[in-house]
């Protein structure tokens, strides 16, 4: 029986970048120009951060505004700790916050039944902005709000974030 070491990826061709899926409340970082994707963003937000200098990039899919509101260990689930954990992972990959740029998408108000107060989508967006601001990471592209879902792809090589909706054309941030 042949045993591969797991790091080999023979099935992917040379030209196409490796594709890495990021689930809800997950984050992934790449240093070799992979394509990071996440799908089905409703009120959730996809925060893409890339380093213009060293080419590292990461994506986190956050669900709720703040870890302070609820117990539970998964930092990637919340807007505040999700941004933190992604920035830390990028720093561990050799990036500095000075070189980091952010693009964000999601935070839709769809199916918000709360009659008063703001929707989870807009609260998520507010918290993501606040936390990025604390790190002084500029938001260079965004597609937020509205009443539709989104799926996104981050091309680590270029920092381009492609946003797809069910009923409209894709846009590139």
């Amino acid at each position: 029986m042949k045993v591969y070491d797991g790091s080999q990826s023979e099935s992917t061709t040379q030209n196409a970048p490796e594709r890495i899926k990021v689930g809800i409340a997950e984050y992934k970082v790449t240093t070799d120009a992979a394509l990071l994707t996440t799908s089905g963003l409703g009120s959730c937000i996809g925060v893409a951060i890339y380093d213009e200098l060293n080419g590292a990039a990461g994506l986190v899919h956050v669900m709720l505004p703040s870890a302070a509101d609820i117990d539970g260990g998964n930092r990637a689930k919340f807007a505040d700790t999700g941004v933190e954990v992604l920035v830390e992972a990028l720093e561990a990959a050799g990036s500095t916050t000075d070189a980091m740029r952010a693009k964000i998408a999601g935070g839709s108000d769809m199916l918000d039944f709360s009659e008063n107060g703001s929707s989870i989508g807009s609260r998520n967006a507010k918290q993501v902005r606040r936390t990025l601001e604390e790190y002084d990471i500029p938001i260079v592209g965004e597609d937020l709000g509205g009443d539709h879902g989104r799926s996104i792809k981050l091309e680590a090589a270029t920092g381009e974030l492609i946003v797809k909706s069910a009923n409209t054309e894709s846009i590139t941030l």
Partner: peptide, 8 residues
């Protein structure tokens, strides 16, 4: 809409 975005 996208199924998962509806439930999300």
């Amino acid at each position: 809409d996208m199924g998962r975005a509806i439930v999300d």
